[in-house]
């Protein structure tokens, strides 16, 4: 079991009092599986992803990643987990603006101590970033930046990749190609993928699709 959520609840404070975003979510994902997570805007998809990445803690319930309960880990422990076992592809890419594309792609892999120059080179090639390696993020289009973020996550070869709308900024053709590439690399490395998307077409390509509505998964 790579990821396991048990009765996870999460509330957010708002002007109208507490809003329950996740109302007891259970989810188990095994190694090598690919899952899609769909739902309306504000349904809590990103929140679920953040909890799975240990970026946030649930108000109730437990999140286990690679067999480790998040609630038992401190900040450094969760950071260690994120470094080696989980890679996140953020909706806003979260690239480091002052490092080159090349350094951005390699950054987390280096941090995790699994950096392989050949792997990074082949990833860049596969995602069509070869010409941009010496550029800085601000010199790239949104779609290109998204691909850098994907490459950075894949370069770590983590147990689990959490991707938030990874093809949201890409035109359909590129989206297809990037998704192909992602799925190929994921299956090659027997990596697990949990992917948030709006697109039924993208969701359809995953092994299984979950729908989040009123705080519950279905």
């Amino acid at each position: 079991m790579v990821l396991e959520l048990t009765s996870v609840q999460k509330n957010y404070a708002s002007v109208d009092g507490d809003v329950q975003v996740l109302a007891g979510v259970d989810l188990s994902i095994n190694r090598g599986e690919t899952h899609a997570l769909t739902g309306e805007s504000g349904s809590g998809k990103s929140t679920l992803l953040h909890l799975a990445a240990g970026l946030d803690l649930p108000d109730a319930g437990e999140v286990m990643v690679a067999g480790q309960p998040m609630s038992k880990l401190d900040d450094a422990g969760r950071a260690g987990l994120r470094r080696r076992d989980v890679a996140v592809v953020f909706q806003q890419f979260n690239l480091i603006p002052t490092l080159s594309v090349q350094d951005n792609i390699a950054f987390q892999a280096r941090l995790a101590g699994v950096f392989e120059p050949t792997a990074v080179a082949s990833l860049s090639h596969a995602l069509g970033l070869e010409e941009h390696l010496d550029k800085y993020p601000e010199q790239l289009s949104g779609g290109q930046q998204q691909r850098v973020a994907i490459a950075r996550a894949l370069a770590v070869k983590p147990q689990l990749i959490l991707a938030d709308e990874p093809t949201g900024n890409l035109d359909e053709e590129t989206a297809d190609r990037v998704l192909d590439e992602m799925l190929r690399l994921v299956s090659e490395a027997r990596t697990t993928l949990l992917l948030v998307t709006h697109s039924p077409k993208v969701a359809a390509r995953m092994g299984r699709t979950w729908h989040l509505e009123r705080g519950h998964l279905s």
Partner: peptide, 14 residues
Amino acid sequence: AMVRTLRALGMPLR
């Protein structure tokens, strides 16, 4: 933003 990213990528806060 960079600080958040670094933490998200696994750099402990301390």
